[in-house]
Nucleic acid binder design. Structure first.
Lengths: 143, 143
DNA sequence: GGTTATTTGTTGCATTTGCAACTATATGGT
DNA sequence: ACCATATAGTTGCAAATGCAACAAATAACC
């Protein structure tokens, strides 16, 4: 059995914990401001970037959401008028999702609150150099 | 409105993403090995440390679980015979939770699998020095 | 001592997530 | 062309989570 040094175990534990704590604070702040959860923002951001509309599976890959889950998230967002689904011309199975004007508006309204929250819980507590180093480490872990 | 440098936004995004990806891999591995989710391990570990038994709220603080949620997690674990709840002598409202022999056995059985998973997704991808630095940064974020 | 506010834990209800099954289309092999 | 297999997305059902309301006991205040 592999012996993992305590310092690494501790780093692992802190990674899990810190992400949970910080993310929860951010979500709470959005909620307090009467805004939808972060997942909505993620979807809106991707849609806003992918101008021609995106296939569902593309969204799923980018925001790391399983397809059934995404399917229903999109249901909710579509019902609120934030996006549109239309059948995909090249692939009869799929649909193309695109953001509505309403969706763009929501995204723009969410960003300041989200940014303030990130600043409060994260960006304000770390220097640019530290953030760069931190980011590199995270990327290495993801590879 | 605060302007957050791109590098910090990216670091934030990676923190969220990396934790999700790595944690999911670990959870999946436990599941594949026929074992309960990580939350069970966390509870068992705390109980194993706190020899005399712990109050529920103490467990909740340590593993960052809200009380209603914890209440039901403990229900499930108690039903499986991993722990015991008995009324607290000093405080008529609360209960004292303690681990059973069965619970200790489960924790010991889970650890090798969990450790191997941590090694695979985290510890094996980072040097001790990097882990130390990383850990410090996370701690700073948590303060 | 009596009243009010807090804390501890549980429960009901709505929302979300995860899993497996399903439909429908597309792809690959022969 | 035909059959098997894989992919895109949806849906039903079970499990987990979040929220608000609640009971019971303690602590705080006068």
């Amino acid at each position: 059995m592999k012996e993992i040094p305590d310092a690494k175990i501790q780093a692992w534990a802190r990674l899990i914990r810190a992400q949970r704590v910080l993310l929860e604070r951010v979500e709470q702040r959005l909620k307090d401001a009467g805004m939808p959860p972060l997942a909505w923002y993620d979807v809106l951001l991707e849609l806003d970037r992918g101008n021609e509309g995106l296939r569902q599976y593309e969204i799923g890959e980018r925001i790391l959401l399983s397809k059934h889950n995404l399917s229903r998230l999109l249901d909710r967002m579509e019902k609120e008028g934030m996006l549109q689904r239309r059948p995909c011309p090249e692939d009869g199975r799929g649909s193309v999702v695109s953001i509505t004007a309403e969706g763009r508006k929501l995204r723009r309204r969410m960003w300041p609150e989200y940014a303030a929250a990130i600043d409060e819980v994260f960006a304000g507590k770390i220097t640019a150099a530290q953030a760069g180093e931190f980011s590199n480490t995270l990327q290495r872990l993801l590879d």
